[in-house]
Amino acid sequence: MTIQPATGRWFISFSLIWLFVLAMIPIPDNLALFRPGFIALGVIYWCIALPYRFGIFQALLCGLFIDVQLNYPLGCHGLAMSILAYTCLLINHQFRMFALWQQAGVVFLLLLPYHLILLWLLQLTKGVDIGWDYFIPAVTSAAIWPLIFMILRDGRRRFKVT
């Protein structure tokens, strides 16, 4: 396989910046629990769609930015994101064969260990116990996956990101 020259790479960063914006927009406190993990969805998408452009280290960097935004010890989201990216790279061929609703199910399964790792790290480093609420975003993220997938795919095709 010959490696294609990279084009439209700006769109990857651009989409991730917008996902960060979505992650920061203020919403009422009782809804904040249900906010999907937009950045994790973006990382999953790019690892599946362009595994040779977007990999573990890019995911790690995204994770570090989330750590800064949420005031976690630096590296918590980084670790969870790296593992998430690795699993995506492992299953990306199978993942592309799935229908959208099946993909949503897989996204949910991918996000469970992601949130579990974060919960462990949070308890380990800060000693706070949060409980099952912490897994709610995995459900809402899976629910919004088809939308994110279609938007990012259309963007990728329009700007010929390879």
């Binding site: 995911a59 630096l74 918590c76 670790l79 480093t125």
Partner: peptide
């Protein structure tokens, strides 16, 4: 990546 993260934490 995991080593970097753990070292940072």
């Amino acid at each position: 990546a995991i080593s970097i993260s753990l070292a940072l934490i």
